[in-house]
Design a protein around this nucleic acid. Structure first.
Length: 185
DNA sequence: CCCAGGATTGACT
DNA sequence: GTCAATCCTGGGA
């Protein structure tokens, strides 16, 4: 079981440590295969200009979730770390109750069920109504990874500020990533 | 008060 | 490869 103090660390460290962790929401989910870190001094972060009515959860206790609507259409799921910092969950490997995911996402290939921040919230049934919930209590269940995993690092996706920072992490060569990492040197 | 723009996705050429 | 969909926050006037 992962405790709240796991999240009371810099988001970059937490983002790396979250790779391979199993995430279940109401008994649906799988291993986290892709994350991105955001922090308070980060121009690309919603917390950059300080606390507002939308990003309040990002300044709340570590180990809770911050959920926001993206492009007026999708929900994106973040794990809150130290105040003003969070980790965006970008992709899961569908493991548990794939039928429920397919029911919500439609009849798509398994590798497309959770390969993107908007897709995985839809597959798990997560919405803004769950903003601020604790990750260490139901309906969330987090289990540590069971074995070591090779991890890729790269630049974040879909942002226009602080583009060059290597704050994106993913399972090396996983077919469930939202986007491949550039070929390693 | 107004309105530009976004941590995206899927449909289409 | 391009592009529209669609909401609502927050920055600026």
């Amino acid at each position: 079981m992962i405790e709240a103090d796991f999240f009371a660390r810099p988001s970059k460290v937490v983002a790396l440590d979250l790779i391979g962790v199993s995430l279940l929401f109401e008994g649906v989910g799988g291993a986290i295969v892709e994350t991105e870190a955001y922090h308070e001094q980060d121009p690309a972060s919603h917390s950059y200009r300080g606390q507002t009515s939308r990003n309040g959860a990002m300044f709340g206790p570590p180990g809770h979730v911050y959920i926001y609507r993206s492009y007026g259409i999708h929900w994106c799921l973040n794990f809150v770390c130290l105040p003003g910092s969070a980790v965006l969950i970008r992709a899961l490997q569908p493991d548990v109750n794939i039928e429920a995911m397919r029911q919500r996402r439609g009849d798509v290939a398994t590798r497309l069920l959770c390969s993107g921040p908007g897709r995985l919230t839809e597959a798990l049934g997560i919405t803004g109504a769950h903003d601020g919930l604790s990750l260490t209590a139901p309906p969330f269940v987090l289990q540590p990874r069971s074995e070591d995993i090779a991890v890729d690092v790269g630049t974040r996706i879909g942002i226009t500020k602080a583009v060059g920072e290597n704050l994106r992490f993913g399972v090396k060569a996983s077919p469930f990533l939202s986007k491949k990492f550039p070929i390693a040197i």
